[in-house]
């Protein structure tokens, strides 16, 4: 049985959610709300950080200096977005080292799309255009999430993200209007990244384990299927402008629904990749561990500096 106090706290929390007020870190919140947020926000943070790997793969091989500078700036942004999200997650009472540990031991997930390899330069274009495009659809919706620090991080990220999708499309456009070989590269990259991009929105609403409660708590504001439809509707005309063939032969405008119809996602592949059997899962975590371990001397130096400063302060106070 709930005590009088916690029943009152629960009622107060429910009232804030109903009235579209944000929940702030010092407010009382149900344990499951906190846990659900930690799961979703840390997964989001991990995705930003792991997402640097497939694109980072092409920094040294970018075709021009301009493309290289752009790609560096984009990957740098992703690192920053990871930081915003880790910091916002930490307001829920979990430490950075616990979050990193959960990622490295496979307890926490990240967006399954980053387990696919980047095989050609066109993949960098396809990622900026489709993967960031899908992420933006999701993140615009999350600007209205009920947890204050998450909402503010989303607003900041969306503002910075605006160039990511455009630089990707610019790459695709240049290739699609280039030589037949370049056009084929663009077509191939789009075909490979199309389905994983649709999978980024998660399982169908009817299959989604966390969706119902997240919607009730207004952590999520629109359903997986609604957001996915929105992405398809905005992307199909962009494919037409590129002059590429549709990556899914079932894509067709449905006048009655006012939306594009499309084919079914291969959910078996989705679950396989999410559960660790994608083409690059092992490599991504191995690289993250190696980078983290190689950075240990920096953290050690920081701790030594702090200890020295503290000692100096103590000596001058004495």
């Amino acid at each position: 049985m709930q005590s009088v106090d916690s029943a009152a706290e629960q009622a107060e929390f429910d009232r804030k959610i109903a009235e579209e007020q944000k929940i702030e870190p010092t407010d009382w919140m149900p344990d499951d709300y906190r846990k659900n947020l930690i799961r979703q926000m840390s997964q989001h943070a991990h995705s930003e950080v792991i997402g640097m790997q497939p694109e980072g793969n092409w920094i040294t091989r970018a075709p021009t200096l301009r493309r290289k500078a752009v790609l560096l700036a984009k990957v740098q942004d992703e690192a920053g977005h990871g930081l915003y999200l880790y910091s916002a997650t930490e307001t829920l009472g979990i430490s950075r080292s616990e979050l990193i540990d959960a990622l490295q031991t496979g307890k926490a997930k990240y967006a399954s799309i980053f387990n696919y390899p980047t095989l050609s330069w066109a993949d960098v274009g396809a990622i900026g255009w489709l993967v960031d495009g899908a992420a933006i659809v999701n993140q615009i919706s999350l600007q209205r999430t009920s947890y204050g620090p998450y909402s503010r991080a989303m607003i900041r990220i969306c503002k910075e993200e605006s160039f990511h999708q455009r630089q990707g499309y610019e790459i695709m456009y240049a290739l699609a209007k280039g030589t037949p070989e370049q056009k084929q590269m663009a077509q191939d990259a789009m075909n490979r990244f199309w389905w994983p991009s649709l999978m980024m929105f998660g399982p169908h609403d009817s299959e989604s384990a966390h969706s119902g409660r997240s919607m009730k708590w207004k952590i999520k504001r629109q359903s997986n299927d609604d957001l996915r439809q929105k992405f398809i509707d905005q992307t199909v005309p962009q494919i037409e402008v590129l002059g590429l063939e549709m990556p899914d032969p079932e894509i067709k405008w449905n006048e009655e629904r006012g939306h594009y119809d499309s084919g079914e996602i291969n959910w078996e592949e989705f679950y396989q990749v999410i559960n660790g059997s994608g083409p690059c899962n092992h490599q991504r975590i191995k690289h993250h561990k190696a980078a983290h371990d190689n950075g240990e001397w920096v953290r050690e130096a920081v701790r030594a500096y702090r200890a020295k400063q503290n000692q100096k302060a103590a000596e001058s106070a004495a």
Binding site: A69, A73, S162, F163, R166, Q167, Y169, E170, Y173, V241
Partner: peptide
């Protein structure tokens, strides 16, 4: 570094 801004990219 104007390429950090969305307006830098000219699209159809």
């Amino acid at each position: 570094k104007p390429y950090r801004h969305a307006t830098h990219y000219v699209l159809p």
